[in-house]
């Protein structure tokens, strides 16, 4: 297990390095931040001073070298716009994005698994067909459009839920989050549902496919032959088996939940990392873009590792192989 984690960590560093190369090359290809940052009325001297301050006068390779050296010391550069360390700005916004992503995941799992199991157990029923048709909609409707429709319906038309912002936050066990206050909860619900819709659909489909496969297995029939209640057969014998693929997919997709929360955060003006990156891209705030992407890569890599470990916890067959 230790060797496995170590090997994976080394691989992760390599991935981070390659990613930094691509990102750095990428942001240097699109636009000139100087045009965006500098007051159009500034004189030539002023412009040159700013360029020099930002280090943009030096060749790209040298800029990259400085970036690498600093990155190893935990410094991913200063935001051109805010003049503050990029990492600090992102970390400040991180809790908002994480709570949104986690809440979405919760919605996806809590609703997705039971709905999927139901659809798998009664594939021919009208309810199941409705669930499956709904999941196709969830897959195919663009997130931003659904977000706007949600706002129009629940905020504008019905006036039940607020449409923007994070609401009140409270601190419990050292974690500051809006899910600890009623006002915060009312704020998080719409964006979280919006973000969850895609995941919800995939969890439903996975749970259904798993159920349809596992329910035919001999050990389910044997469990019934032992006289177990249908509840125990489904909640223990079936669920534990269908969880294996679901955990894999959910874990891997949690990264994409965070990465792609940009759209939802923009629609609902949610003060998270996603909104920050969108603004950074508008302003060509290179250090933020680079730092954000590096962090996202790091999150993906870490999640992969966690998924592999969880997987081995769920499936004893994998566990033994790892130990042997």
């Amino acid at each position: 297990m230790t060797a496995f984690v170590l090997r994976r960590s080394l691989q992760s560093i390599l991935v981070l390095f390659v990613m930094s190369l691509i990102v750095f090359a990428g942001v240097n290809l699109v636009g000139d931040p100087v045009d965006m940052l500098i007051n159009p009325e500034a004189d030539q001297q002023e412009i040159e001073r700013v360029i020099k301050d930002l280090g943009l006068d030096r060749p790209v390779t040298e800029q990259y070298w400085y970036f690498l050296v600093n990155a190893f010391q935990g410094d991913l550069g200063k935001s051109f716009v805010f003049g503050e360390p990029a990492l600090k700005l992102i970390v400040q916004r991180m809790p908002a994005t994480f709570e949104l992503a986690l809440f979405s995941l919760l919605i996806a799992v809590v609703f997705g698994i039971p709905l999927g199991i139901y659809a798998g157990l009664k594939p021919a029923s009208k309810v199941s067909r409705t669930i499956m048709a709904g999941s196709i909609l969830g897959f195919s409707m663009p997130t931003f459009w659904v977000g706007i429709i949600l706002i129009m319906f629940f905020s504008v038309h019905l006036g039940w839920l607020p449409s923007t912002g994070r609401g009140d936050v409270a601190t419990v066990f050292g974690i500051t989050s809006s899910i600890f206050t009623l006002d915060g909860l009312s704020h998080i619900f719409l964006p979280a549902f919006n973000l969850a819709l895609f995941k919800l659909s995939s969890v439903i489909r996975l749970a259904r496919a798993g159920t349809r496969e596992i329910i035919l297995q001999d050990y389910i029939k044997f469990a019934r032959a032992k006289g177990l209640s249908e509840k125990r057969v489904i909640n223990v014998h079936l669920l534990k088996n269908i969880l294996i693929p679901i955990v894999t997919v959910i874990g891997l997709e949690f990264g994409s939940l965070i990465a792609f929360s940009t759209v939802t955060e923009t629609v609902f003006a949610w003060p998270g990392m996603g909104k920050l990156i969108i603004e950074a891209i508008y302003n060509l705030d290179r250090p933020i873009i680079v730092a954000y992407l590096m962090i996202i890569v790091l999150i993906f890599v870490t999640l992969n590792l966690i998924v592999d470990i969880t997987y081995s916890l769920l499936d004893p067959r994998v566990r033994i192989k790892g130990e042997g």
Partner: peptide, 30 residues
Amino acid sequence: MRGSRIAMIFQDPMMTLNPVLRIETQMIEA
């Protein structure tokens, strides 16, 4: 009735025990 008065043994022993549950779990629940 099932499992208490009438029990069944299946053909393929590789498939009749739930792969993700301990033997004791599967016996105690019965």
